[in-house]
């Protein structure tokens, strides 16, 4: 946030910065930190591409088979890429004490946690959604399904970030939380996977995908309402424990 847009100093002194500023400042801070470490930013994308490369090698290079499998493969790989990035969601802030400051700040902490989750989605889920058509092309997906692929991944990965934040918050205090994190989170990802991959399949057949997109939106709405709250409770416990 540039200095000229900051509110007057006096409004800081009263009790707290307005929530809007705190929310945007948290997103901005997380994005800045991410953009300073570009290689880390690229890791989930490279992982996504690599996993997709493995499937034709492991199954078959035949286009008609790949086309059949593509929606599921793309979705599962994107889901794993998000999962891989989750461990870093709170880890650095936990280790250098930023997380404690965040929880102690006068603003409602669940909204600040939501800001961190939003930043995570902007740097992980959204790039994955934009990259998916390229990999879809390599898996012989028809171009007519690309809009559905992008839309479901963009919508669905937001839910993945939200649900994943709960798991990341629960395991951030543990030394080796990575494997445990996937055990906790993967079962909860199943509805998103079903509706996401289902919508892409429908799009290949030229059917209407709106109902599935609406369901993904419903999952996102429920996640937005509940997940930051649960993640904050889990973070409190990790910071105190």
């Amino acid at each position: 946030m540039s200095a000229d847009r900051l509110p007057e100093a006096s409004s800081f002194n009263t009790s707290a910065a307005p929530l809007r500023y705190a929310f945007l400042a948290t997103i901005r801070r997380d994005l800045t930190l991410k953009l300073r470490r570009r290689s880390e930013l690229a890791n989930p994308l490279v992982f996504f591409a690599l996993i997709i490369t493995l499937f034709p090698l492991g199954i078959t290079p035949r286009q008609e088979v790949l086309r059949e499998l593509a929606p599921g493969l793309l979705w599962v790989s994107a889901l794993l890429a998000v999962l891989l990035s989750l461990d870093g969601l709170f880890r650095d802030d936990f280790e250098d004490g930023t997380l404690e400051q965040l929880l102690l700040s006068p603003q409602p902490s669940s909204l600040l946690v939501l800001a961190k989750i939003t930043a995570h989605w902007l740097t992980t889920g959204l790039p994955l959604a934009f990259m998916a058509p390229l990999l879809g092309l390599m898996l012989a997906l028809p171009a007519t399904s690309f809009p559905a692929l992008c839309a479901t991944l963009a919508l669905g990965s937001a839910s993945l970030s939200l649900i994943g934040a709960i798991g990341a918050a629960l395991t951030v205090g543990l030394k080796r939380g990575g494997v445990l994190l996937s055990l906790l989170i993967l079962p909860l990802y199943i509805p998103v996977l079903i509706f996401g991959a289902g919508a892409v399949k429908l799009a290949i057949d030229g059917a209407v995908v709106m109902p599935y997109l609406a369901l993904l939106g419903a999952l996102l709405a429920a996640g937005l309402a509940l997940a930051p709250w649960a993640a904050t409770a889990a973070l409190r416990l990790s910071v105190n424990g």
């Binding site: 906790l184 649960a230 889990a234 416990l237 990790s238």
Partner: peptide, 12 residues
Amino acid sequence: SGSRAASILALV
């Protein structure tokens, strides 16, 4: 901590 974490996960 373990108890509280397990409780949160059970609710989720």
